[in-house]
């Protein structure tokens, strides 16, 4: 499926980055455009250092001294180059996404806020887990922490506000709900999302290539496992 849309414009983000705004709202249509541009822009020009997805944007970090010399300044030259590439990227069919299975134990102290989410949503805990594992999610953005995925596709019935007081330390692997979003903390960090389970998988490992298990555009399903299965994977 290709994406039809108005021309893409790259605007400056400081003197070493350009940003293309691909929609006003973080919806499916905008995301299709973000995803289509991402893979094309990586390696599109020797001056491009990195290409980062936002909910409605694609940002290109670049090295100005490595943009070919023209009568114009590098930001202008590179923006026109990338804009010329964009229509092709948006017209091209998007490769079918990778489906990543994430095992999660939704039990006991690994799920400290599950009862709170159940209370808030008026569902029982089993129904919360059934709905959380029943959906397929899109990785829309990686940010906040190395390997932290922002996932779209949470059942609206599960939406629960963040905690008033963020925890000082959320353990690595914690699966949380923050407002209408769900995600996984790949590393221990402070955090305010409601924790409903934990995965034994290491979603981020700097010694691995790629370091992050998930990339923008992947699809994710959570699968409930019991405590024994969690322990087997967590401590091999």
């Amino acid at each position: 499926m290709g994406v039809t849309s108005p021309p893409v414009r790259f605007d400056p983000l400081g003197d070493c980055a350009l940003v293309a705004r691909l929609g006003e709202r973080a919806d499916d249509e905008t995301f299709a455009r973000v995803h289509a541009l991402l893979s094309l822009l990586r390696g599109a020009h020797p001056a491009v250092r990195d290409v980062v997805a936002g909910f409605t944007t694609v940002t290109v970090h670049y090295e100005p001294a490595e943009v070919e010399e023209t009568a114009d300044l590098p930001h202008h030259t590179l923006a026109r180059r990338l804009e010329a590439l964009a229509p092709d990227a948006l017209a091209r069919p998007i490769a079918s996404p990778r489906l990543v299975d994430i095992p999660v134990c939704y039990e006991g102290e690994l799920a400290p806020d599950l009862d709170e989410v159940a209370r808030h949503t008026g569902l029982d805990a089993r129904e919360v887990v059934a709905r959380h594992t029943g959906a397929t999610y899109d990785v829309r953005m990686i940010g906040f922490l190395p390997g932290f995925p922002y996932l779209a596709g949470l059942d609206p019935r599960l939406a629960t506000p963040r905690r008033d007081e963020p925890r000082a330390r959320v353990p690595a692997g914690s699966v949380g709900i923050g407002g209408e979003q769900t995600g996984v903390y790949p590393l221990s960090s402070p955090g305010g999302w409601r924790l409903i389970g934990r995965t034994p998988l290491r979603l981020f490992d700097p010694e691995r290539d790629p370091a992050s298990v998930l990339a923008v555009g992947d699809r994710v399903r959570f699968r409930a496992i019991d405590r024994a299965a969690y322990e087997r994977v967590a401590s091999p």
Binding site: C16, A17, R25, A26, F55, T57, H61, G143, F144, Y150
Partner: peptide, 27 residues
């Protein structure tokens, strides 16, 4: 909606005090 930032980006959090993002900034 959240979007990429860069070293040198000057953000305005809700408390009204600007933050200049530096080398270890979130992406």
């Amino acid at each position: 909606p959240s979007s990429a930032v860069a070293m040198g980006t000057v953000q305005l959090p809700p408390n009204g005090e600007p933050i200049v993002l530096m080398a270890d900034h979130q992406t």
